[in-house]
Amino acid sequence: MKINSLIYTDAELVDKCIKADMFAQKQLYITYSSKLYVICCRYSSCKEDAKDILQDSFIKIFNSIKTYNHSGSLEGWLKRIVVNTALSKYKQTKKRVVSYSADVENLGEFAEEEAVSEEEFAHYDEQILLRVISNLPDEYRIVFNLHCIENHSHKEIAELLLIKEETSRIRLLRARKKIIKMLSDLKQAK
């Protein structure tokens, strides 16, 4: 059951969280955890990793909430922390493994790629898209998220991940191709 998020304003929530008010901390968690969990799922390959990222992110948030200077939106600040936590986790467990989760059902036999039209794409719900992104290899997924959803440039991504700009471009291209392929496979499976 979701508690009414309008009990405190963002500024009041922050002030109370700085004072380690447990009720306010839970309030903040309940208000923003759903959106932040989506980010965690986008950056991770499985639910367990997503839960870990969310948990670590909120602990960091509560420990460093006094550094929030009310300059931007609270939601934006929280999302940045989650993304940074996800990147830290990725850097810690970097491995070059191509992972295809069993969560994506019945991919069907490998066939020629069929393009996915815009109308068809609209029918895919967020859950499926999330699964498709989670099924990308780690390095492709990170670059895709940072560029397409977080709107980082390739130069910024290269600095963040300590890779070349060209590598970032190649990974993004491959990520897009893979997403299209997986969506078309799903379309065929249906």
Binding site: V38, A115, E118, F121, F144, C148, I149, R176, I179, I180
Partner: peptide, 15 residues
């Protein structure tokens, strides 16, 4: 392709 170019934006708008 058109899809590859816009897949990122489409996913972002949904997410």
């Amino acid at each position: 392709s058109f899809e590859e170019k816009h897949i990122g934006k489409s996913i972002k708008s949904k997410m």
